[in-house]
Amino acid sequence: MITYIVLALIVLILIAAGLGTALIYQKDMQTWILGYWKNAFFSSKPEVKGTTHVMFCFVDHYEPQWLNKDNIELERARVDRWMQDYPVMASKFTDADGYHPKHSFFFPEEEYREEHLDKLSDLCARGFGEIEIHLHHEDDTSDNLRTVLSNFAQTLHEKHGALATDPVTGKPVYAFIHGNWALDNSHPHGHWCGVNDELTVLKETGCYVDMTFPSPDATQPALTNCFHYAKDDPAKPKSYNSGKLMKTGGEAWGDLLIMQGPMGFNKEAFKFGILPKIERADIRDNCRPTPGRVDNWVDKHIHVEGRPEWIFIKIHTHGAQDTDMGALLGEPVEIMHRHLNEKYNDGEKYKLHYVSAREMYNIAKAAEAGKQGDPNDYRDFILKKPAFKRI
């Protein structure tokens, strides 16, 4: 009898393990789940003495042509809604330094229209955000990618006053988000890139940081909830899968800095009432930025090693998609900002700092250099604010 019970338990365990493995692969968790669990269960949260500073960065895969490449009027309507509604929403909130929320528009090179960038530049000149580079490409080559990125960076800089400049060379530099998350040809089937030495090309064309991740599929690196340097292997894809963590007293290494947003599990959202949904820092109408999610982002405690009192939250969206604009420009996002200010901006336990992608990079580099105190002092630590053009 005991033998049958033991055998039944073994069978149940094997079935559960098989179902768990199937679920992991179905949700594309196989690339990161082991490292995440290791950190979650075997690493203690660093102790913070004094004030915790929360850097909050909202990056946007901003694509006005979404599913409508031949409808310029629809593109204009999408951009104009942001020009009208974003300042109204953002003006209701300020951080510990008196800044309103700053939206980082990662604009796709393949959708470039001068009139759209003129409007976004005007919005940024008024203090509501900054512009960086986004790119979708397929079956590309290193040489073509180098030309495309260099030319687009120069166009944004010369025509719109966008992008920071290298303090030594004076050339425009940029933060980057890869279309479809397939950075460095990382899609398992080779889609949406084609360039195995993409990290090298990005570095050569002025990219100072990648902000693509977290991702919703197998392109996600094994490392999560951290900032790390990646070294390119020109012969292989997904060179960013491993690297060296950014730390106080350290220095740049390899070819590209990867700054990720919070990833894990959404404790307040359950599928079938049993399984928690995966948290990938994605904001849209069906994935709203609730107070519970905000608390979860803070709890991930992403920081430069050795500076735990400065934590970084980078969330992302596709802001030009019609179905999501109500959540991004109306009450759902206002609920998020109210919670950030009420819980994480009391001036003693927490201070909130709204930052652009460039400012987040600068503050992280200041932490790496051993700087302390108020991170507001380091918004322009290396890269100065672009001189955006007004309309």
Rank of each mutant, 00 (worst) to 15 (best):
L14T: 06
A230F: 02
H100S: 09
I382F: 02
D285S: 15
T155F: 00
E305D: 14
D299R: 12
V54I: 12
Q220N: 11
G20A: 00
A90Y: 02
I131P: 04
L257H: 06
I313P: 00
H337F: 15
D233Y: 04
D28V: 07
Q372C: 13
Y354H: 07
V355M: 08
D377Q: 15
G206I: 04
K384W: 02
F381W: 01
T212S: 01
M263G: 02
I33W: 11
P216F: 09
C287E: 14
A16R: 00
P386M: 03
L23M: 13
I10Q: 04
E75S: 13
T31S: 11
K389Y: 10
K277P: 12
D97Y: 11
G170Y: 05
K38W: 15
I131Q: 11
I133H: 04
V355D: 03
I24N: 02
K49P: 06
K27R: 14
T219C: 12
M89A: 12
T224M: 10
G161V: 08
F56W: 12
W253R: 10
D166E: 03
H187D: 13
W82I: 12
E138P: 00
W37L: 15
N144G: 01
A218F: 14
Y350N: 06
I2S: 10
A281C: 08
F93Y: 14
A77V: 10
M259R: 08
L383D: 10
H189A: 14
P188V: 06
P46L: 05
G170L: 05
M259V: 09
V148R: 10
L123H: 01
K92F: 09
H316T: 10
N241E: 08
M336Q: 05
L120T: 10
Y86V: 14
G250S: 05
N296K: 05
Q220P: 07
G35H: 09
V209R: 09
P289H: 04
F93P: 07
N286H: 13
I391A: 14
V59H: 01
Y354P: 07
